[in-house]
Each structure stands twice: as structure tokens, then as C-alpha cells.
């Protein structure tokens, strides 16, 4: 996402310069689909694949939440809503796992992104994995736990 300058943050759909997170405004951010997909067209295929996988993961997780909430006040002998919720939670886990593995591997191999840096080095020009990536990693672990719990509940 052309992060050549310092204070540059890069997401799946927009990049920002000058520390947007601290200011809380999107004035210095650029959406990838602005100006007729100007930035999106130049993104590598693996990045587009991560965008697609994350979009499907969002849809799948919302479906599992919907069915999970629905199953709290609905019971039927014909079908088991817990198994359905578990299946969607498991699908979310698979999609997230593939997305973060692909992003992590490609960002490390092609852009030399790092998890932690040595304090003695000049950290101004080093690409680091940001908190959004780690939130996605946490969601992956939780979706696996949720799917196991729902399959356990569904079997009883």
C-alpha cells in the first residue's frame, strides 16, 4: 500500500498517513476503491485474496451469531441449530486462518514485515504487523473455541 513514508498505517481497505488512530479522523486516509479503484487495481493478487477471505469470514461469523442467538429461543426436533452454528463458526475459523496465514507469510516474505523490533535499531522505516492483524489472530482462536463448544452442545 505504498507505505514509503513514516507514520503510515495500512489496512485491508484504506491506508492512512500521519497517525490516523491517534487523531481518530479519516481526513488523511485513502480508500482503495476511491477514484475508480485507483489503488485497488495496483494491489497484488494475494492481497485481493485476503480481502475476499476476510469478507467471507465477516459474513460467516455474522451468520453464526444470528443462528446462535436464534437457537437460544428456538428448539426443534427436526434440526439442530447448535450444529449449524458450530458449522458456521468452523467455516469462520478456516477462512480467518487462511487469510491471516496468507497475509502473514506474504507480508513477511515480500515486504519483510516484523512482529517485534530491536529497540537499538532505527524503527522508523521498519514495517510492523499492526493491532488489526492481531485482533484477526485472536478472532481466529476464538472462532475455533466457539465451534468446538457448539459441536459439544449439539452432540448432547
Amino acid at each position: 500500500c505504498d507505505c514509503s513514508s513514516t507514520d503510515c498505517d495500512c489496512g485491508l481497505w484504506l491506508n492512512c498517513r500521519g497517525g490516523p488512530s491517534s487523531a481518530g479522523s479519516l481526513n488523511n486516509c485513502q480508500w482503495y476503491f476511491a477514484n475508480e479503484f485507483a489503488i485497488e487495481k495496483n494491489l497484488p493478487d494475494w492481497f485481493k485474496a485476503v480481502q475476499g477471505l476476510m469478507s467471507c469470514a465477516v459474513a460467516s461469523s455474522m451468520l453464526s451469531l444470528l443462528i446462535g442467538l436464534f437457537s437460544l429461543c428456538w428448539s426443534s426436533k427436526g434440526c439442530n441449530p447448535y450444529q449449524a452454528t458450530g458449522a458456521f463458526a468452523n467455516l469462520t475459523f478456516l477462512l480467518l486462518a487462511v487469510a491471516i496465514s496468507l497475509f502473514g507469510a506474504k507480508a513477511y516474505l515480500e515486504n519483510k514485515a516484523e512482529v517485534l523490533t530491536d529497540k537499538s535499531r532505527d524503527t522508523d522505516h521498519i514495517l510492523l504487523f499492526g493491532w488489526s492483524f492481531w485482533v484477526a489472530v485472536g478472532s481466529t482462536a476464538l472462532s475455533l473455541i466457539a465451534s468446538i463448544l457448539y459441536f459439544c452442545v449439539g452432540r448432547n
Partner: peptide, 30 residues
Amino acid sequence: NCLVITAIICVLVTTVGTIVSFATPNWLSV
């Protein structure tokens, strides 16, 4: 029961986490 409540909380946190990471510009930073 307790297991169902734990499971629904996990799904809820997963959904919120997925949406937050999907929409925020901090996957990589310089």
C-alpha cells in the same frame, strides 16, 4: 446452560473482532 452462554459469547466476540480487524487500517504500520 453455561456451555451455550460461553459459546454464544465466543461467537459474539469473534464477530466483533472480525469486523473491527476488517475495517481498521492497522494491519501493517511503518
